[in-house]
Simulated assay, not measured.
Amino acid sequence: MAAALVREELVALAAIFCGPREWEVLSRSETDGTVFRIHTKAEGLGDVDIPIELVFQLPITYPSCLPRISVNSEHLTRAQCENVKDKLLEQAETLLSEPMVHELVLWLQQNLRYILNQPEPREGSGQDAFEVSLTTDDGLWLALLHLDHMRAKTKYIRTVQKWASDLRLTGRLMFMGKIILILLQGDRSNIKVPPN
């Protein structure tokens, strides 16, 4: 039944997004589901249309589970793209158990300007911001970093490992649901705490 719903939705989406480069199926798999790309425009701030690329991965259990979504636009920052993705996933939760991709695209087209109008996270509270720093003695320091998100997880982990090695730091990278933490320990001169 779910496979039939997905087939019907894909046929409908191909008919709706029938302009040049608006729709492209990237892969189909019986184990990983279907991945496709939609190029659309959404009304941004100042009534300016913003081109957006949306990549959806529909797992084989879709629509009983959320699709995976990627948002890209040359006209938006990475943080804005992440925020748009988060808002789309929040909207998707209200549409579970029914085909939802077209509804999500329509919702984005109508609501992008409101998403962009929300204040960005204040500097120092975002990616790579120190949340806690503790001194164990004059030379040995502990620092706990909270990351907002991690796009290329494998590459990011390698980079953090290299930095820690270069600075002679020990630490641990922890994934706790959506929370990503890095705990570092090392010489005080190798850990700098930004001002509050």
Rank of each mutant, 00 (worst) to 15 (best):
44 G>N: 02
46 G>M: 07
46 G>S: 02
47 D>R: 10
49 D>Y: 10
50 I>V: 15
51 P>C: 15
52 I>F: 15
54 L>P: 03
54 L>G: 04
55 V>G: 07
55 V>Y: 07
55 V>W: 07
56 F>S: 02
57 Q>R: 15
57 Q>Y: 03
59 P>C: 13
59 P>T: 13
63 P>K: 14
63 P>H: 13
63 P>R: 14
65 C>G: 06
67 P>K: 12
72 N>L: 14
73 S>P: 02
73 S>G: 11
74 E>N: 06
75 H>G: 00
76 L>V: 06
76 L>I: 01
80 Q>E: 15
80 Q>K: 04
82 E>F: 12
85 K>Y: 06
86 D>I: 05
87 K>W: 13
88 L>I: 07
89 L>D: 07
91 Q>E: 15
92 A>C: 02
92 A>K: 03
94 T>F: 14
95 L>E: 05
96 L>K: 01
97 S>C: 15
97 S>N: 14
98 E>F: 14
98 E>R: 07
98 E>M: 13
99 P>S: 13
100 M>D: 07
101 V>K: 04
101 V>Y: 06
101 V>S: 03
105 V>F: 06
106 L>F: 07
110 Q>V: 01
113 R>Q: 09
114 Y>P: 03
115 I>F: 15
115 I>G: 10
116 L>Q: 06
116 L>E: 04
117 N>E: 11
119 P>L: 14
119 P>I: 12
120 E>H: 09
122 R>N: 03
123 E>H: 04
123 E>W: 09
123 E>T: 02
124 G>N: 02
124 G>I: 07
125 S>G: 11
125 S>A: 09
126 G>K: 00
126 G>W: 13
127 Q>N: 14
127 Q>V: 06
128 D>G: 06
128 D>C: 08
130 F>V: 08
130 F>R: 01
133 S>Y: 08
134 L>T: 03
136 T>S: 05
136 T>P: 01
137 D>N: 12
137 D>K: 05
138 D>G: 01
139 G>I: 07
139 G>Q: 08
140 L>E: 02
144 L>G: 01
145 L>R: 03
145 L>C: 11
146 H>W: 06
147 L>T: 00
150 M>G: 02
152 A>L: 09
153 K>R: 07
153 K>V: 11
154 T>E: 08
154 T>D: 08
155 K>I: 11
155 K>G: 09
157 I>N: 03
158 R>V: 11
161 Q>E: 14
162 K>N: 04
162 K>R: 09
163 W>P: 00
163 W>T: 02
165 S>E: 11
166 D>I: 05
166 D>F: 10
166 D>H: 05
167 L>I: 06
168 R>C: 13
168 R>Y: 15
170 T>N: 00
170 T>P: 06
173 L>M: 12
173 L>V: 10
173 L>F: 15
174 M>S: 09
174 M>W: 07
174 M>E: 09
174 M>F: 12
